[in-house]
Design a protein around this nucleic acid. Sequence first.
RNA 1: GCGGUCGUAGCUCAAUUGGAUAGAGCAACAGGCUACGAACUUGUAGGUUGGGGGUUCGAGUCCCUCCGACCGCGCCA
Length: 559
Amino acid sequence: MEPIAAEHALLPDDALRALADALRESAQALYPSASAEVSFEAPRRPEFGEVATNVAFSLVRAARRSPQDVAAALVADVCERAPRVTQLFSSIEAVAGFINLRLSPSIWQGTVARIVREGEAFARAAHRGVRISIEFGSANPTGPLLVVQGRALSIGDALVRTMRLRGYDVFVEWIINDAGGQLETLGRSIDARYRQLSDPAVPFPDDGYPGEYLVEIARRLHDSHPELATMGDSERVASLARFARDELVAEQQRCVARFGVEYDLWQSERELHETGKIEAGIARLKELGLTYESEGALFFRATEFGDDKDRVLVRADGRPTYFSSDVAYHYEKLQRADRVIDILGPDHHGYIGRLSGLAAALGYPGHLDVLIAQQVTLVRGTEQVAMSKRAGNIVTLDEIVSEVGRDATRFFFAMLATDSPLTFDVQLAVEQSNENPVYYVQYGHARICSVLRRAHAGDVEAAKVTDLSPLKHAAELALARRLAELPATAQGVVDALAPHRLARYARDVATDFHQFYTECRILEGDVAVRHARLALCLAAKQVLSTVLGLLGVAAPESM
RNA sequence: GCGGUCGUAGCUCAAUUGGAUAGAGCAACAGGCUACGAACUUGUAGGUUGGGGGUUCGAGUCCCUCCGACCGCGCCA
């Protein structure tokens, strides 16, 4: 085989794809009756190689031989059949039925060169014309955003950024629940606060929203809108409700922006009513013959789609339910996107079946994914922080961000699997902030920047085009292998809707860099090694910066 | 009662969609800078994956059944 120039270096994926083809050919030749399924995975233990495939297990039944025999036969055959492919590997071994592989160092070196050359475009996938609509964070416009929303925001935004990197068209939405009884309750609450300004004896409604924030908003509205004083009761309550809604939404938008999350659309539920979309959604279900009337109300046959009871769309008195908003909103989203994702709060477990059933009913089975961002329990040391809107002792997202910092908060919330309940110890996050994994990763980035600052500018420039064959040390190759995982890791995040893998990967990259840094002197030694190691630094810096960017966390030059 | 999400080291959590001897961080203990940033690193210890069955070459992962936690179960939103 001809030596490969750096610009045309094969990536690990290229080598594995070639090997997969070769293995399929061998399997076809050896066991014509079976169909070989070749997939690769990273073994848990390093002695099992860098990559492994369990293809032999899928052939056992047809071959009627042990997995180990099949694997050994496959290896022997593929080495003979496709020497040009197996030459890309430094070892191919059949062990206990698995085929364990090590790629030639030149493959890993080529990846490093490619990262340096492509910069932030590394791991970016071509535009693929797939539209994804995603909604997360949405809250009632009746108060400030709480800690739970921070988790949904961290997870959702990381997912969005990763999907965009991987070539998807993503449209990010927030639904404002500004219709129905909740807004009336908000109106009565704010009105009580408003009247209390002149008469402290005015009673506060039992079911009102007790938070202090309504007192402040009432005071501001009193000063900025003197016309309120001259209105009749019902007109004033309605006006106050509207003003308060606007103020609270603006406050939520400010909080979200501070958290580093951008939305394409803040969809008002009231607007869905006003523009006739609710009726359109209901009409669609009627058209499909999926509704019936009972006791004066209009029902959707939800049980036919896996829900545990049929759902009311329009009440006996003619008013549409909240579920009809769900119908209308999801119908619209399903029409304009190829895939729809909802990230909902922990009190929405019942929705998972209801909404996916709805998608199926509307003619889009499997197009909707519902993720539940599990509960967040706040703890200060051993003391649990009570959180109750009704009691008014809420902990807002803003408070947490102010106390812990945006980077640490985002990293921490994105670090855990979405469906795993999480305990957030504020005291630990603040007092032992140095132990927080986010600083470990950021430190890795800052450390690289420090090395690059100390290096001669000429050396750094030379590193960008240098020959990387001096990278042979175990720690160097381990880091290079890790960096090469970024595209697959990012794609896995999208496929499995599992953004927490980004945080884990970021930490793994930092670990491998720190090890490399500990074992290999970068700025000393001969020119060829120095340049190659600086190139590895540049690549590691790029990957850390990309991953932190996906998480919405800063990649500091120094700290 | 019905339905949903979970249960993994002392603590907080992983486990690449069913793969090999279940891994990290923190806490604990013992080491490593005359050093490009020690916010780092090397090692030790820590487990019947809540219990019990089943499915198969192979189960933390899938099925059944108990136990436990949380959340839903309204013509509220």
